[in-house]
Computed example of a mutant assay.
Amino acid sequence: MRKALRLTALAGLFMASFAQAATPIDVYRDPNCGCCKSWIKYLEANGFSVNDHVEPNMSALKQRLGVAPRLPPCHTAVIGGKFVEGHVPVAQIRELEKHPELRGIAVPGMPAGSPGMEMGQAAQAYQVIGLTQDGTDEVLASYPASSTQ
């Protein structure tokens, strides 16, 4: 019985430390967007603590954050003072702090198969774009297309 109690206590400590280790991120989204909610679930499943903000004026928010008009697809997140635009995979979000030259990163459009856009159909090829401080684009990662056959 003591061993079971000790294991239960250790499990509780592990879960508490895991919850504290979650990386905070602010996500701003339109109130009617379903894929935004899917992307938030994806972030939470991958160790992020999401502060979900329903934003009535996404255009003004994107402009304030310096998101280039050619990049905005949907929701916008902010982490470490940088923007994360659209359906960006966790791997590139975690790498963002290693890129001081970037203002933010984006997945332009809403490509099928990207995080939050998994709908059973073939995945489209897409790129994760970094926007530098001087306004130029830099390809950070490329994801290939795939079929469901």
Rank of each mutant, 00 (worst) to 15 (best):
Leu13Arg: 15
Met15Gly: 07
Met15Leu: 15
Ala16Pro: 06
Ala19Leu: 14
Ala21Gly: 07
Ala22Gly: 11
Pro24Val: 11
Val27Tyr: 01
Arg29Lys: 15
Asp30Lys: 14
Asn32Ser: 12
Asn32Cys: 09
Asn32Ile: 12
Gly34Ala: 15
Cys35Glu: 04
Cys36Val: 05
Lys37Ala: 13
Ser38Thr: 07
Ser38Val: 07
Trp39Ala: 06
Ile40Met: 11
Lys41Leu: 14
Lys41Ile: 12
Lys41Gln: 12
Leu43Phe: 08
Glu44Lys: 06
Ala45Trp: 03
Ala45Val: 01
Gly47Pro: 05
Gly47Arg: 12
Phe48Pro: 00
Asp52Ser: 13
Asp52Ile: 10
His53Trp: 10
His53Cys: 10
Val54Ile: 15
Pro56Asn: 13
Asn57Gly: 07
Asn57Trp: 12
Asn57Tyr: 08
Ser59Met: 14
Leu61Ile: 10
Leu61Gln: 01
Lys62Gln: 10
Gln63Asp: 11
Gln63Met: 07
Gln63Asn: 11
Arg64Tyr: 03
Arg64Ala: 14
Leu65Trp: 03
Gly66Gln: 05
Gly66Trp: 08
Val67Asn: 01
Val67Tyr: 01
Ala68Met: 12
Ala68Pro: 07
Ala68Ile: 11
Pro69Cys: 05
Pro69Leu: 14
Pro69Trp: 10
Pro69Tyr: 06
Arg70Phe: 13
Leu71Asp: 00
Pro73Leu: 03
Pro73Tyr: 07
Pro73Val: 09
Pro73Thr: 15
Thr76Cys: 04
Thr76Phe: 00
Phe83Lys: 01
Val84Ser: 00
Val84Tyr: 01
Glu85Leu: 08
His87Gly: 11
Val88Phe: 04
Val88Asp: 01
Ala91Arg: 13
Gln92Asn: 10
Ile93Arg: 00
Ile93Ala: 00
Glu95Gln: 15
Glu95Leu: 11
Glu95Trp: 09
Glu97Tyr: 03
Pro100His: 11
Leu102Asn: 03
Arg103Gln: 14
Gly104Asp: 00
Ala106Phe: 03
Val107Arg: 00
Val107Ile: 08
Pro108Asn: 07
Gly109Tyr: 00
Met110Cys: 02
Met110Ala: 08
Ala112Tyr: 02
Gly113Val: 06
Ser114Cys: 08
Ser114Val: 11
Gly116Val: 02
Gly116Ser: 02
Gly116Thr: 04
Gly116Asp: 01
Glu118Ser: 12
Met119Glu: 05
Met119Asn: 14
Gln121His: 07
Gln121Leu: 09
Ala122Glu: 14
Ala122Asp: 14
Ala122Met: 06
Gln124Ser: 15
Gln124Trp: 02
Ala125Glu: 09
Gly130Val: 02
Leu131Arg: 01
Leu131Glu: 09
Thr132Val: 05
Gln133Lys: 15
Gln133Trp: 04
Asp134Cys: 03
Gly135Met: 06
Gly135Thr: 11
Thr136Met: 12
Glu138Thr: 10
Ala141Trp: 02
Ser142Glu: 15
Tyr143Pro: 05
Pro144Gly: 10
Ala145Arg: 06
Ser146Phe: 13
Ser146Cys: 08
